[in-house]
Amino acid sequence: MTRIKQTLQPRTLILAAIVVGVLLPFVPLLLWSVSFRWLYPSVLPESLSLRAWQYVFSPRAEVLSALGYSTLVALLVTALSILIGLPAGRALGLYKFRGKTAVRFLILAPTIVPTLAAAMGIHVLFIRYGLVDNVLGVVLVHLIPVLPYVVLILSGVFANYNPDFEAQAQTLGASAWQRFRHVTLPTIFPALMVAGLFAFIISWSQYILTLLIGGGQVVTLPVLLFSFVSSGDNAITAALSLVFIAPALLFLLATARYLSGNQASLGGFGKL
């Protein structure tokens, strides 16, 4: 018994630290969002108020439109990146071919080199060809940081994938779509979810790329949030922050089961 206790003790401490460490920053966010006159040294707000939430949900705050822009961009980026990245993931995971190392390196390069550098470089061409100040340009520039992660995650699952089942289905007369739908998709579905989660989150979190290419006119949530961070209105900043994380958390809830307990999807990061 004592032996078990001894081995459990440090782990319990670590687990407690994980819970506190992850959750602690959310505490002041929640408190600030409903606070009214919360000055040092009060540990709790002197009085509560829904001022910030009322503002956030009033039409003049344009939070709804920002939510719309963020969702539109993130969904388009997710769909596009999976459409483009799925074949690439298959090629990298399944095939041996000449120049594979170079191709892999090239696709992963944007995870290493800051995308802001590339975005600043290409900005002048985007201006020239009308790709600034609109959703299309923002979606394109978001693809730069998103695509490598999608390809990486999907190539991970294809590395352990057996294409023989597809061949068997083909001999049984299944069409290309049927093969994808009934053979390929069920196998890669978890990894697809994780890839989708990462694509969505990376796009959803972008501030500076959106600001640069969206020219301030594609006002996504982070762009809106940032103008409040710099203004020092903590209550509204906190409320907006919570609005900002809500959809991403929903997305995580829907895909959490695929994140852990499945080494194929995230394991790809371990084989850079």
């Binding site: 995308t115 590339a118 975005a119 470089g121 290409i122 002048v124 061409l125 693809l143 730069i144």
Partner: peptide
């Protein structure tokens, strides 16, 4: 997008 961006930079 990325290669072009770095080259343009």
């Amino acid at each position: 997008l990325f290669g072009g961006g770095v080259l343009l930079a």
